[in-house]
Design a protein around this nucleic acid. Sequence first.
DNA 1: TTATTATTGTCTCAATTCGAAACAATAGAA
DNA 2: TTCTATTGTTTCGAATTGAGACAATAATAA
Lengths: 233, 233
Amino acid sequence: MTLPSTDRYFPHIAYDSVVFGFSKGKLKILLMEYHDTGWFALPGGFVRKDEDLESAVKRGLFERTGLKDVYLEQFHTFGSKERHNPKVMRTILEANGHVVPEGYWMLDRFFSIAYYALIDFEKVVLTPDSLSDSISWYEVNQLPKLILDHSKIVQKALETLRSNLERKLIGGNLLPERFTMNELQAVYEAILGEKLRRTSFQRKMLSLDILERHEKLFTGKSHKAPYLYSFKS
Amino acid sequence: MTLPSTDRYFPHIAYDSVVFGFSKGKLKILLMEYHDTGWFALPGGFVRKDEDLESAVKRGLFERTGLKDVYLEQFHTFGSKERHNPKVMRTILEANGHVVPEGYWMLDRFFSIAYYALIDFEKVVLTPDSLSDSISWYEVNQLPKLILDHSKIVQKALETLRSNLERKLIGGNLLPERFTMNELQAVYEAILGEKLRRTSFQRKMLSLDILERHEKLFTGKSHKAPYLYSFKS
DNA sequence: TTATTATTGTCTCAATTCGAAACAATAGAA
DNA sequence: TTCTATTGTTTCGAATTGAGACAATAATAA
């Protein structure tokens, strides 16, 4: 493996993705762990000189998760001086056996355009990139220490997701095609970080006229079976 | 005047500002008209290698308007391939008497980080940059044709401003320190593009407990004088 | 001085929404 | 058949909002 050269990618420009998933009642995001450093980071990458910014982000997302057609939203671009720390990138590259020349472009200061994605947890097939041991899920409120300003990026992603939740009805993107009202409520509660009233939530969702009701789901439990719903298309 | 060299600025990275002002009941933004081209564009600029992104935007805003401490919000980064059109920048530079070498950095593809600003119309002192004949106010719903994707940038700024208006109570930034309830309502109406109910608006604003009531404003008109208000600090 | 006019600030009443709880339905277990 | 746990629906009062009426008042006209 040789280091990528600057001919192919824009210098100073990167993206980071905060990929949200939902499982076992918890909101989670994807983190990568770099080889031999114990360091965690958001999945991200660079933009090729012949592609759109958004295409680059989608390409990276596909490489890590195997998913296309993902709910994706740009939420902020991080461009402060303090986020520049060439030692971090140098250490990561050297831990991978690279010889990093002085002035190598990946050590430069970067402006990172951050996106968040909402995906169906069950559908992903995770693949680490060449610099990482692993990519896996972490609960948003139990994250390990992250490199650079990545914790700040996650924080801002969460804030944006919360404030967009009501306005854009995006909660369903974290669930499979069909789901129960309880599961939908659990998604909302995990994102907002607070319990919601069951009856009010149900009434609200139904009155919005965005759900389609399907057959009941019989779980074998000894109580009334809930309906399955999907979002109207 | 010589062309700026790339040593000082980041290549491929620019910012654009949508500066909103309010006057005579209309919502307006600042546009610059380039020398000898008849072309209009948003005020923008480049980021110096030794400054924060936000500092660069504030510096540019100060140079054009004479204002510091402005309400400023980043809302989107534009990074599609289609926005790259080197002929436009070449023409602008050449119309200013520059000799533009092949491969000059300002002709490259740029990622533009867009901000909107809310300012007190009465406070600005406008100063065009060296490439422009003028910088002046244009009604948002009567804009001339803009270069590149600047119309799209304005559109997105307006959408963001609208959706932030209620959540962040930012309307007051377009008014002087003290204002009447009617003026505040006019700001809201101009931004939202719709008439609001006078009594509901007043009740809502007062119930939010964010306004301080001051002395009355006697305009000489033969009717009850309105109170002046300011935002609580 | 007194009526008039235009606009502002407040109040009223009905419609709607929302929180909180009760009630009814029901799938499986006892 | 009864019981338990959970779901879907309804009810009731509180809070919010839309629409309008009403009262207050600064300057002008009579």
